[in-house]
Computed example of a mutant assay.
Amino acid sequence: MKKITLQDIASHLNISKSTISTVLNGHGDEKRVSKETQEKIIQFAKESNYKANHLARGLSLGKSDMIGLVIPNIGDNYYARIARRIERKARLSGYNVVFSSTGEKQERESELIQSMLSRGVDGLIIASSQKNEEDILKLKKNNFPFVLIERCYPELETNFVGEDNEGGVSLAVKQLIQLGRKRIGFVSLKPGLEAMRMRLEGYQNTMEQRGLVVRDEFIHELEYEYSEDEMYEVVKSMVQFPTSVEGIVFATHFLAASGIRALKQLNIRVPMDVALISFGQMNAFDLIEPPVTAVVQPVDELGDRAVEILLENLEGKNLNHRKIILSNSLKIRKSCGAI
């Protein structure tokens, strides 16, 4: 049987494709399409089996069965894993996921949110640049269902699922201290993201609580789009006598990968000369020598909980804003000197 298209419906009913699309996406009333025309379009779509699975969920109620996902970088292993998990969880509940990347740009994030709204998504899951409070506030004021993940706006009460950034770094620092490392460095990204600020606090607080000196020369913050040469200079400065570090905690997995490359170029032995731990994992971390100790982020649970909260909102349940902070764990490998 030939697949029915919008053009087929338009030709048969002598109604424009744009009007048909508006009605089939549940915006007929909003666009002031007459009830008679809406009923005619919906009835023909049903009889023609046009997107039958979509109609079965209640086309006339204005559901698109689509969730929009806005993330910083789909090429980042961490966000790619979150996207896969969200897509899997949503699909099991009968929803498709439309997603795209912002590149940490506020303008791009705003464009994507507006684009997804115009496509009629039922709800949004957003890992924000934290520079786009205006659009987030609009969604909140309009009671549009959305969940923020990983990054939130502390001054706004919204649905949020994140991880314990401060506690995760604390696990890493404590592990190095337990193994006798006292001069511990920290490499992060420059302030702007709440997660980076909390990870820095986790490092500083844990060092101070254990009676260790937090030296300015042990803390380095790079731009989001740093170069390998910049990482090389940072690591070089941290391993130079007389203030050389005995351990380094990298605030992200991609910082850790660059740091490992720099240490190899400098002929610094891991973990004999410098132990290291990464906040976040990469698939290769258990394959390289030495395997890399890493703070394990709760990717699967984060994706699942975000979808669950959004679906509850879409179904009119638990409409109060929910904030969930998930715990991290530590996967110990040879790079910290424990094995």
Rank of each mutant, 00 (worst) to 15 (best):
142 N>M: 10
179 L>T: 04
170 S>A: 15
200 L>V: 02
180 G>L: 12
122 D>P: 03
219 I>Q: 04
155 E>N: 15
155 E>R: 14
198 M>Y: 13
216 D>C: 03
191 P>D: 12
163 E>K: 09
207 M>N: 06
182 K>I: 04
144 F>K: 07
225 E>W: 04
221 E>L: 12
122 D>N: 01
130 Q>M: 13
212 L>P: 05
129 S>G: 07
212 L>K: 07
141 K>T: 10
200 L>K: 08
197 R>Y: 07
222 L>V: 00
212 L>M: 07
177 I>P: 06
230 E>Y: 06
130 Q>Y: 02
185 G>R: 02
187 V>I: 15
230 E>W: 07
171 L>C: 09
154 P>I: 11
182 K>A: 10
225 E>T: 09
195 A>W: 02
213 V>E: 14
227 S>P: 03
205 N>P: 00
216 D>A: 12
205 N>S: 13
180 G>H: 07
190 K>F: 05
220 H>L: 02
195 A>G: 09
174 K>H: 13
164 D>C: 13
227 S>E: 11
191 P>R: 03
197 R>Q: 15
134 E>C: 03
200 L>G: 01
211 G>D: 08
223 E>K: 11
183 R>G: 08
222 L>F: 04
224 Y>A: 09
167 G>Q: 06
154 P>V: 11
154 P>W: 08
176 L>S: 06
172 A>R: 06
217 E>I: 10
176 L>D: 02
222 L>P: 00
170 S>E: 13
187 V>S: 05
155 E>V: 13
205 N>D: 11
201 E>P: 01
197 R>H: 09
200 L>S: 01
185 G>T: 08
136 I>T: 01
188 S>L: 01
124 L>T: 01
127 A>P: 00
204 Q>F: 01
215 R>F: 09
199 R>V: 04
180 G>D: 12
141 K>H: 05
212 L>R: 04
215 R>K: 15
219 I>Y: 00
219 I>N: 01
218 F>W: 06
225 E>H: 11
229 D>N: 14
147 V>F: 05
161 V>P: 04
149 I>G: 05
221 E>D: 01
188 S>N: 15
206 T>Q: 07
211 G>K: 05
207 M>I: 02
210 R>S: 14
134 E>N: 11
209 Q>M: 11
227 S>T: 15
138 K>W: 02
156 L>Q: 06
213 V>H: 10
204 Q>P: 01
130 Q>A: 10
216 D>Y: 03
174 K>W: 10
170 S>C: 12
199 R>I: 04
183 R>H: 14
179 L>C: 13
153 Y>L: 11
211 G>C: 08
226 Y>S: 07
228 E>K: 12
133 E>W: 00
214 V>W: 02
227 S>N: 08
137 L>D: 09
190 K>H: 02
167 G>I: 07
157 E>T: 14
187 V>G: 05
136 I>W: 02
144 F>I: 11
201 E>W: 10
160 F>P: 01
143 N>C: 08
161 V>R: 03
168 G>E: 04
188 S>A: 13
227 S>V: 09
141 K>S: 13
121 V>N: 01
183 R>D: 15
201 E>L: 14
223 E>N: 13
172 A>V: 09
